[in-house]
């Protein structure tokens, strides 16, 4: 079992239902930290910004964040989910620079006003945990459940691959804009149906 996300770039309408429901479900207060982000890029010869990408932590096979953390605060479960034990984080922020996708986040005092008793610092790293508590109950992560355009899906990596045969694993040549920090090969558990269609302006005139 290797849980993964699937994203259909042709169906995303950048509505942010995923990112807002994520913050709501996971009780991330309003503010700059958002575990799942939606952005629109100009790429692949398109004349304007029109390539949407909704992405969170990709729960990589070889998580660069986990390798970088000297405190063993980042754990990869047998089912593939990568999560952070926030009580172990001491704020070295090595994960932040290591992750190609800028998935680990640090909140500020406004967004995270209270330090929990088990934490050693005010704002330990936080990130997507694939809605572990929902997955354990047999439910899909909240982003997937809330996706208006049915662009997101979730399940076993191999099962998703056979279900969506035209999807590819997230990679830096097809999706350079997904790689915010570096292009380290980490084996992301993220399959994408790539958008190939661009728009013409004024019917090509």
């Amino acid at each position: 079992m290797r849980y993964a996300f699937y994203f259909d770039q042709t169906r995303c309408m950048s509505c942010n239902s995923c990112s807002v429901s994520c913050k709501d479900w996971n009780q991330v207060n309003p503010g700059p930290v958002r575990w799942r982000k939606v952005n629109t890029y100009k790429a692949d010869g398109g004349p304007i910004a029109m390539f949407n990408l909704a992405m969170s932590c990709n729960h990589c096979e070889e998580p660069a964040c986990k390798a970088a953390c000297s405190q063993n605060a980042i754990i990869k479960k047998d089912n593939g989910i990568v999560y952070v034990d926030r009580s172990k984080c001491i704020g070295l922020q090595l994960c932040i620079t290591a992750c190609p996708f800028a998935a680990p986040h640090i909140a500020d005092d406004k967004q995270e006003p209270e330090q929990k008793a088990s934490w050693t610092i005010a704002h330990p790293m936080q990130k997507c945990d694939m809605c572990m508590s929902r997955v354990e109950k047999g439910e899909k992560p909240v982003c997937v459940a809330s996706c208006v355009g049915h662009a997101l899906d979730f399940g076993d990596f191999e099962t998703l691959k056979s279900k969506y045969r035209d999807a590819v694993q997230l990679n830096s040549s097809d999706f350079p804009y997904a790689y915010a920090n570096n292009t380290t090969e980490t084996g992301p558990s993220m399959l994408i149906k790539k958008r190939t269609r661009t728009v013409t302006l004024n019917n090509g005139n």
């Binding site: 309408m13 950048s14 949407n52 269609r197 728009v199 013409t200 302006l201 004024n202 090509g204």
Partner: peptide, 8 residues
């Protein structure tokens, strides 16, 4: 963005 082939 999601649906169109051409933008007038």
């Amino acid at each position: 963005v999601t649906l169109a082939d051409t933008w007038y």
